[in-house]
């Protein structure tokens, strides 16, 4: 334990409104939900923010509901909640799969979808699934709410559109992917409790041999969770042929910027990303 907990404050106002008021009054406050990221930083002595406010067990943020073909997940939904929900299992299997890949069971019991998104790691497990399901994200602050496509949420490495005093309220997913081909594969350091070296998620709607819709997103391919628009553009409206697969791989290679780090190498990530894309295209 490399921090002095006496140097930190934590409050738990108990309602969303109270949290938002506190955030509005004190812009230095940092929200902590399940703690699976911030507490690691605390342990190794690298937790920058010293004033924290707890979102844990805020009922207003922990819900899963379906209405008019839209599934809404509160930001406080845990990965365990996702894994146990029948609607998500039916409509959004990739999300269930990525939830199961997130940390360990103990981390899934505590970690929240909102926390995972706000933490904004390019290696995070769920964001690629949300991106290929065309998610929108709703933000809330004392000043009100706003909704935007999730694809516009991440601005750069660990940078998001969240303003001071603003929280993620919910993620919305349209229930219209039942007929899509769906794919996700994570390449981690081991089978469990692994951080992604890379991952690729994809959904595609086929019209005979032609790709009518396609969405691709990955982990650790660029500096943030992001769609792979250039690659999608190459494939959209086409039939999968060997030539197209080559073009798609070239497009992918040109739009991703994997890095060398402690877990893997850029060239490995590049090659495996292309292989996974190819595996998906071959399955169409």
């Amino acid at each position: 334990m490399r921090s002095d907990v006496r140097d930190y404050t934590l409050t738990a106002p108990g309602s969303l409104n109270a949290v938002l008021s506190a955030l509005a009054a004190n812009p230095r406050l940092t929200p902590v939900a399940g703690g699976t990221e911030l507490m690691v930083a605390l342990g190794v002595g690298r937790l920058g923010p010293h004033e924290l406010i707890s979102l844990h067990r805020l009922k207003e943020l922990r819900f899963i509901e379906e209405h008019s073909g839209i599934l809404t997940l509160g930001a406080g939904t845990t990965f365990t909640d996702i894994r146990r929900n029948a609607t998500i299992a039916r409509e959004f299997p990739l999300l269930v799969q990525t939830a199961a890949w997130t940390g360990s069971i103990a981390n899934q019991n505590r970690g929240t979808l909102g926390g995972n998104i706000a933490n904004a790691s390019p290696a995070a497990d769920s964001p690629p699934a949300l991106l290929v399901y065309d998610a929108t994200i709703e933000l809330v602050s004392a000043n009100g709410r706003r909704t935007l496509p999730y694809g516009e949420f991440h601005l750069g490495y660990k940078k998001t559109v969240l303003l001071p005093g603003e929280l993620i309220y919910a993620v919305r997913l349209p229930c219209r992917f039942a007929k899509h081909r769906q794919y996700v594969r994570k390449v981690g350091t081991r089978n469990a409790q692994a951080i992604s070296k890379i991952a690729l998620a994809a959904t595609a709607l086929m019209d005979g041999a032609t790709v009518r819709e396609i969405r691709l997103a990955g982990a650790s391919l660029v500096d943030r969770p992001a769609r792979l628009h250039a690659t999608e553009a190459v494939v959209l409206g086409k039939a999968i042929t060997p030539e197209l697969r080559t073009l798609a791989a070239a497009a992918l290679a040109s739009e991703i910027k994997p890095i060398d780090d402690i877990r893997s190498t850029a060239k490995y990530r590049m090659a495996v990303a292309c292989n996974l894309l190819d595996e998906f295209l071959l399955s169409l």
């Binding site: 190794v44 350091t189 081991r190 089978n191 469990a192 409790q193 692994a194 951080i195 402690i262 877990r263």
Partner: peptide, 13 residues
């Protein structure tokens, strides 16, 4: 020098 980055097999491996 962290268990996150030094990869020993888990029960799933």
């Amino acid at each position: 020098n962290q268990m996150t980055n030094y990869i020993m097999p888990t029960s799933a491996d």
